[in-house]
Design a protein around this nucleic acid. Structure first.
Length: 557
RNA sequence: UGGGGCGUAGCCAAGUGGUAAGGCAUCGGGUUUUGAUCCCGUGUAUCGCAGGUUCGAAUCCUGCCGCCCCAGCCA
């Protein structure tokens, strides 16, 4: 499906660096912090980092940026590995952690101290904030800024050895407290944190900060291009400052691109976590979540996610991409791979009054109209069927091509039927339609060449497999919940509707990960968490495009 | 009000001085036993605004406006 990958500004830089001989081979990295699940925004970073390496015969590391113990966990690292793999990328033996480099990082820190480029500060957190100044006022130097190298080294070693409590001291880079760039006002390099780490246990009680750990990990892994999002643009001067002071053998280059935001979705780990915590959704993998885990469970194909970010491109402009762009990718992939079946989501009983009592016919149905190689299947047909409630209308407008009193429709892969009588219950609700069929109109074999405007799907009542089907709608009611004051107020109360559907028998043994199309309705898959043969549970991945809905809408207006 | 970015049609996005690709959406139409798919066609884009340079500018210069990010011992 993807044509040649477009050459964006990053691929252009990489191409030039290869061409000029600056690098023989490019090395990238995808560096998530294991403090939450990956979401649609990360998909772009993953595809970019692994993508440019794949395209140029380079290498990519999956590196866990685990420098903040206490907020990170093994559950998240496993989820991240699973998600990256599912997306279709392979890091081979290049799975690393920033914590793998703690010894080397520590040595780099001492080197900074020895060259007078870093010092141990003993101000409190609040004091440091005060000394930092504001966006428009310069900060001022800490009274500890001019400690001797020996004193700094001694203090830093004692920090490492656990002699001080959390917050007592802080290793800072000595740059410029008056810099207009806040990141250069003597940024923190190492803080004391008496917490055990998921990987290094209690070996350390001081942990490196992001800027320091990230920059030097990149250098240690010989990363050539460190691709990150726009909010780190202000950090690049610090990134380069560290490389200038420490002069590692390999010098990486940081390049920033804009994040991808999807309309009607949220991509903030904090907010996603809030939805999980308060039970708004059933978990990080709730099929309504924009997490990779949620989208996988929902049934969105990995290829659709990759194609979606590919189409979006890589730029520096803030994007808020419409849902429709994503949904088109999903439908394109599914339309091609999903076999066709019949399933009735909102059943309405139809009795064929002139159909031979007790007769059952097996109707041949194509598994995919555009791919005959996928073969056919037999679907049982009988005198009692279910059709979709929406496919019958009592006071139908002229352009309604489906069933109406006295009107005719074709039953897909079956016969043409006419609606003779509408049966209601005491409350006036329609409970059944009495129809007659024309035996001469059987699909494929009928001798009649009668044409009717509409074709609807059906399931034989006696053979139907009842199933719980979860119908999803967007989680948020507004297009930009990310920038809403209170995103919880933007939730769509109709994001999940559960119905009991009637499915054709072939659907009884649908496997996990195998999407199908219910003709005229949408794409569905078995729910990987809740489904069982005894109690089937399916998810609606996405509806089919529905131009009738548009016509109806226009008629209303 | 300091610094760093970004501004091409409703949403994305090519374009790097020679007179505005493409995708999605929209709106028409054709095919169709899925109102799906598929196929055609459909956009006066004052290239944020205003000046300037040039034979010629979305592309260069100047000024202005708008939006995003930065004051964690988070990443």
């Amino acid at each position: 499906m993807s044509d040649a990958t477009p050459r964006d500004f990053i691929r252009q830089i990489i191409h030039d660096d290869l061409e000029s001989g600056k690098h023989d081979r490019i090395v990238t990295r995808f560096p998530p912090e294991p403090n939450g699940y990956l979401h649609i925004g990360h998909v772009m970073s993953i595809c970019l980092n692994f993508g440019v390496a794949e395209e140029t015969g380079g290498l990519t590391f999956l590196r866990f940026d685990d420098t903040n113990p206490g907020k990170e966990s093994e559950e998240y690292v496993q989820a991240i590995e699973r998600d990256v793999k599912w997306l279709g990328f392979d890091w081979e033996d290049r799975l690393t952690h920033a914590s793998d480099y703690f010894d080397q990082l520590y040595a780099f820190a001492e080197q900074l101290i020895e060259t007078g480029a870093a010092y141990v500060d003993s101000l409190s957190a609040e004091e440091i904030r005060e000394y930092r100044g504001t966006l428009t006022e310069a900060g001022k130097n800490s009274p500890y800024r001019d400690r001797s190298i020996d004193e700094n080294l001694d203090l830093f070693r004692r920090m490492r050895d656990g002699e001080f409590a959390d917050g007592a001291h802080l290793l800072r880079a000595k740059i410029d407290m008056a810099s207009p760039n806040m990141n250069l006002r003597d940024p923190a390099l190492y803080r004391i944190r008496h917490v055990s780490h998921q990987h290094t246990g209690d070996k350390w009680c001081i942990y490196p900060m992001y800027d320091f750990a990230h920059t030097m990990s990149d250098a240690l892994e010989h990363i050539t291009h460190s691709l990150c999002t726009l909010e780190f643009e202000d950090h690049r001067p610090l990134y380069d400052w560290l490389l200038d002071r420490l002069q590692p053998e390999h010098r990486p280059r940081q390049i920033e691109f804009s994040r991808l935001n999807l309309a009607y979705a949220i991509t903030s780990k904090r907010r996603l976590n809030a939805l999980v915590e308060d039970g708004t959704v059933t978990g990080w993998d709730d099929p309504r979540m924009p997490t990779i885990a949620g989208m996988r469970r929902r049934g969105y194909p990995a290829e659709a996610l990759r194609e979606f970010v590919r189409r979006g491109g890589v730029t520096k402009k803030d994007k808020l991409i419409e849902m429709a762009a994503f949904e088109t990718c999903v439908r394109e992939v599914l339309g091609d791979v999903a076999e066709r079946r019949m399933g009735v989501i909102h059943p309405l009983k139809v009795v064929l009054t002139n159909y031979p009592e007790g007769q059952v016919e097996m109707m041949q149905a194509s598994n995919h109209p555009n791919r005959p190689e996928l073969g056919e299947r037999a679907v049982p047909f009988s005198g009692e069927l279910y059709i979709e409630r929406d496919d019958f209308m009592e006071d139908a407008p002229r352009k309604f091509f489906r069933l109406k009193p006295g009107g005719e429709v074709r039953l897909r892969n079956g016969y043409i039927i006419r609606c003779d009588e509408v049966i209601r219950d005491a409350s006036g609700e329609i409970t059944e339609l009495r129809c007659s069929y024309d035996p001469d109109t059987r699909s494929g074999t009928g001798t009649s060449d009668r044409k009717v405007k509409g074709t609807i799907h059906w399931v034989s009542a006696a053979h139907a497999v009842p199933a719980e089907v979860r119908l999803y709608d967007r989680l948020f009611a507004s297009p930009d919940p990310n920038s809403a004051e209170d995103f919880m107020q933007e939730l769509n109360p109709q994001s999940l509707t559960t119905v009991t559907a009637m499915l054709e028998p072939a659907l009884a043994d649908l496997a996990v990960g195998e999407p199908v199309q219910f003709e005229r309705v949408g794409y569905f898959c078995v729910d990987s968490a809740d489904h069982s043969a005894a109690k089937p549970v399916l998810n609606r991945i996405i509806t089919l495009r529905d131009s009738w809905a548009k016509i109806e809408k226009q008629a209303m207006a």
